[in-house]
Design a protein around this nucleic acid. Structure first.
Length: 869
RNA sequence: GCGGGCGUGGCGGAACUGGGAGACGCGCCAGGUUUAGGUCCUGGUGGCUUAACAGCCGUGGGGGUUCGAGUCCCUCCGCCCGCACCA
């Protein structure tokens, strides 16, 4: 009996699929098959695939192959998110052009992915750095420009001093660049923006229809867009009557945004952001204010400090007139907790109903007047101590608002403000427009020319693409395109006078904001071919890491709407189904000095302790963490595939852990998967000589032994299918183990039981087809060995026979007072009376009842009986 | 601080709408085959009490609803993720 050789077998079937062009998709002209577009987030070509890729693509391949077998016309493409900074860093370090570095990496990673045996349509492959791709992206940019969805403005930007590039607000994490981790500086630059805020309402509202998205992701997006209803209110400024700013000129009015206009009568101060224009004015004439502002800014970027920072403020000496109370004036502070980026950069503080305002009021001894009273509290002695009251209630101490609900009071204040011409109701969003300018070489050039006379002039469509020049140097910091005179200096397309190309390139998030649509018609002469895009879009199932839950997915949703506006697509939402998978983790190891060690440097001894492989020194085993180079807890997929084969690696990725949760890589797990491939193979080899020929007619009769196997087979079909449909691949895997176990212990008497052999073939074929999305090579080899002529990749998904899913005789549990006491074998669907009688006749139940009185008997049909005594 | 999620054997986990807790895998124990070893096969494996039969306990803790709770409700504890002085 030949042992299964994964290496040669996998190569053989990969060649066979390529030869037969099995996975190349085409628009189905008759529309007789439903389409299904499954896509995994395309990789950045770093050079090597990692286990996260293996997990991601193994899952996507299960879906793609399963849907194929279910009769869908499946599109399953792959490409490369190929622009970006690492290529420039590599260029600098290794003196290699970014393009050469990138394409070499792609070649290597393509080979690695192909060794996984994925059912990908490689004929559609492209990289976002292909001129053909980014020329189409430039066309889209021009369309956005024309539709006022792209624009240029001076703005304060987040400047990453390490990457030497601008970052979007979304890319700044805890005051540091999302990629470099360096503290971000603020600089003023002229920048290109995409008007994502034009769709803020749609992007928020449409989340409600994305019912095949994880709730978590929808919530994160909603929070990111951050819609809140409130009011803008203008306060008249008086003074200064005292304090450090006495005598200096200032604003006449301060406009605040509040989500709680109902609490206006509880206001006891106004607070300005340290970056507010009025603050700046005051700081210019007052060193104390300037010093305070500087101090706030210093505190401003670091994360941990701010979290625990005390609420602090500085009284400007100015006063603001209360809009409804002629005799009340509120002090105006500059406060460290007021953000310039949100609302108007100024607030009114109502200490009784906002914790931050309360902390502030207690510190500066300001009035705390409750104006919302909880339902069961007494308005007379309801008071605020150290905790602000933010719950529901009724207005009090609020003149014309007294007795109103919070909602009514909010509306009333907004309406009176409008009447009195000092404010209005207002919806505020946290979302900002998407800054897309990057001062980098390795990105999509923005196709415009700057002219002293004509301003910003778009490059004519006929003159696209604006290609990246060769012969650039990366020695100097900043953008190499700025230094490339022959590329940079061009005549103005409008007037012909000397002009200057835009040297900014687009954020790589733009590249990934429409690649999924390009896959529908990857060689089209325009960005998107409407026939193809209308047929394939939206993506039915998108799969990737949760780390892209906000940025990439929000940009893709925006961009799809933007190009819909320009007429390139007919859908608003790019991904109708989304699945976010967990990370691949591994234990970490350190020696006594605290140095991280690779798994290969560590040996597990028989007593379970870990030692250094080379010298037996003791090792500290740390908790399982995401595989990362810095912690050295990385397992290279190539090593695993080389040693065990792709099927084993894929099987392990799908076993045990639910796909949405983190998976812990263990040696035991991969060994177990590897043993299973051997077991499948043995089951087939040991029985193949005695099985009936493929396609033999169903025997008329099966004995009990065969019937049990057939039932199990058909139940497995139901359960495995259900597991795949619900993204519970681990459950499907468990059911496949169960079926294999049953086959392993299945015995047939060849002299008397041909039907038994038939049932065995049925079970084996079913098993093979159902493992084929997970272990496609082994399945093809088995399919061939079983005497089938076509590819298992083209075989239909098995269908369970309903009559085999139900058993005639069932075992039901009998409880007494809710505790299991025994079981009962009985024909299914018996009348309740008979089940009750049978249950009461069970020996253990009779014993347990003894001389107690039976008060009730609850019969749940075909499930359980509960005797209550 | 706000929002979301999770907590089940030694480990990863299963249990569709409340109905036999622990499927399946790993690990471990015992036995067998072959062998140098692994592979492979058979059986066992939540805890406690017991010689055994059997019984009791058991899904983070406590309480509740129910004939019946891993599942629903309240409360407390712990862990994870996201956002964050968002007015």
């Amino acid at each position: 009996m030949a042992r299964y050789n994964a290496k040669t077998t996998e190569a053989k079937w990969q060649a066979a699929w390529a030869e037969a062009r099995t996975f190349e998709a085409a628009v189905d002209p008759d529309r007789c098959k439903p389409k299904y577009y499954v896509l995994e987030m395309f990789p950045y070509p770093s050079g090597r695939i990692h286990m996260g890729h293996v997990r991601n693509y193994a899952m996507g391949d299960v879906v793609a192959r399963y849907k194929r077998a279910k009769g869908f016309n499946v599109l399953h493409p792959m490409g490369w998110d190929a622009f970006g900074l690492p290529a420039e860093n590599a260029a600098l370090e290794n003196k290699i052009h970014p393009a050469k570095w990138t394409y070499e990496n792609i070649d290597n990673m393509r080979g690695q992915l192909q060794s996984m045996g994925l059912s990908l349509d490689w004929s559609r492959e492209f990289a976002t750095c292909d001129v053909d791709y980014y020329r189409q992206q430039q066309k889209l940019f021009l369309d956005l420009l024309q539709n006022d969805l792209a624009y240029r403005r001076e703005s304060w930007v987040n400047w990453d001093p390490v990457d030497q590039t601008v970052l979007a607000n979304e890319q700044v994490i805890d005051g540091c660049g999302w990629r470099s981790g360096a503290p971000v500086e603020r600089r003023q630059l002229s920048q290109w923006f995409f008007r994502i805020t034009a769709f803020q309402d749609e992007l928020l509202n449409a989340l409600g229809d994305l019912d095949r998205w994880p709730e978590k992701v929808r919530l994160m997006q909603a929070n990111w867009i951050g819609r809140s209803e409130g009011a803008r209110l203008r306060f008249t400024v008086k003074g200064p009557t005292m304090g450090p700013t006495k005598g200096s000129a200032a604003h006449d009015e301060i406009e605040v945004f509040t989500t709680r206009p109902d609490t206006i009568f509880g206001a006891s101060f106004l607070a300005l952001s340290p970056d507010h224009p009025m603050t700046a004015k005051l700081a210019a004439g007052n060193p104390d204010i300037a010093a305070f502002v500087a101090e706030c800014r210093r505190l401003g970027t670091s994360e941990e400090v701010i979290e625990k920072a005390e609420k602090r403020g500085l009284d400007t000496g100015f006063r603001a007139a209360h809009p409804f109370l002629a005799d009340v004036e509120l002090p105006i502070y500059i406060a460290n907790f007021v953000l310039i980026d949100y609302g108007t950069g100024a607030i009114f503080g109502c200490p009784a109903h906002d914790q931050r305002d309360l902390d502030f009021a207690r510190k500066y001894d300001l009035n705390v007047l409750p104006v919302v009273i909880p339902k069961d509290a007494d308005p007379v002695d309801f008071s605020i101590d150290s905790e602000a009251y933010v719950g529901p209630g009724q207005l009090a101490n609020s003149h014309f608002l007294d007795g109103m609900s919070i909602e009514d009071a909010k509306a009333e204040v907004a309406s009176r403000a409008e009447t009195g011409n000092f404010g209005t109701g207002q919806v505020m969003y946290r979302l900002r427009d998407w800054g897309v300018s990057r001062q980098r070489y390795w990105g999509c050039p923005i196709p415009v020319v700057h002219c002293d006379d004509c301003g910003v002039v778009p490059v004519a469509e006929a003159d696209l693409p604006v290609t990246l020049p060769d012969g650039v140097t990366f020695e100097r910091p900043g953008n190499p395109l700025d230094d490339h005179a022959t590329w940079r200096d061009v005549p103005c397309p409008s007037c012909g006078k000397p002009g200057r190309r835009e040297t900014d390139t687009l954020d790589t998030f733009v590249d990934s904001a429409w690649y999924f649509a390009r896959f529908c018609s990857p060689r089209a002469g325009q960005p998107l071919d409407r026939d193809a895009v209308d047929y394939w879009m939206p993506v039915d199932q998108y799969i990737g890491g949760v780390e892209h839950a906000i940025l990439h997915l929000l940009y893709a949703r925006f961009f799809t709407r933007a190009i819909e506006t320009c007429g390139h697509v007919g859908v608003s939402e790019p991904f109708s189904g989304l699945f976010t998978q967990g990370m691949v983790c591994h234990e970490t190891y350190r020696d006594d000095a605290g140095t991280w060690l690779e798994p290969t440097e560590v040996d597990r001894r028989d007593d379970g302790n870990f030692v250094r492989a080379n010298n037996g020194a003791s090792i500290k085993v740390g908790r399982s963490e995401k595989m990362s180079k810095s912690r050295k807890n990385v397992i290279d997929p190539e090593d695993i595939i080389e040693r065990y084969g792709a099927d084993t690696a894929r099987w392990f990725m799908l076993s045990d852990s639910p796909p949405e949760r983190d998976l812990e890589w263990t040696d035991g797990g991969i060994e177990g998967a590897w043993r299973f491939t051997g077991r499948i193979w043995r089951i087939i080899e040991e029985s193949i000589d005695r099985l009936p020929a493929p396609g033999t007619a169903v025997p008329g009769r099966f004995d009990d032994n065969a019937l049990v196997l057939r039932r199990l087979t058909h139940q497995a079909i139901g359960a495995v299918t259900d597991g795949i449909e619900r993204f519970q691949f681990n459950v499907s895997v468990a059911r496949l183990y169960q079926l294999a176990n049953a086959l392993g212990s299945y015995k047939v008497d060849d002299d008397t039981d041909q039907a038994g052999r038939w049932a065995q073939r049925e079970a084996i074929e079913t098993l093979v087809v159902m493992i084929s999305p997970m272990m496609p090579h082994l399945a093809e080899e088995a399919w061939q060995t079983l005497g089938q002529t076509g590819l298992v990749a083209d075989a239909p998904w098995p269908v369970a026979s309903p009559e085999l899913l139900v058993e005639d005789t069932i075992t039901i549990a009998v409880q007494m007072n809710g505790k299991m006491r025994g079981t009962l074998e009985i024909a299914r669907d018996q009348p309740e009376d008979e089940v009750r009688a049978a249950a009461l006749a069970v020996d253990k139940i009779k014993q347990a009842i003894g001389d107690k009185e039976v008060r009730r008997v609850i019969v749940v049909p075909n499930r359980i009986v509960n005797v209550v005594v």
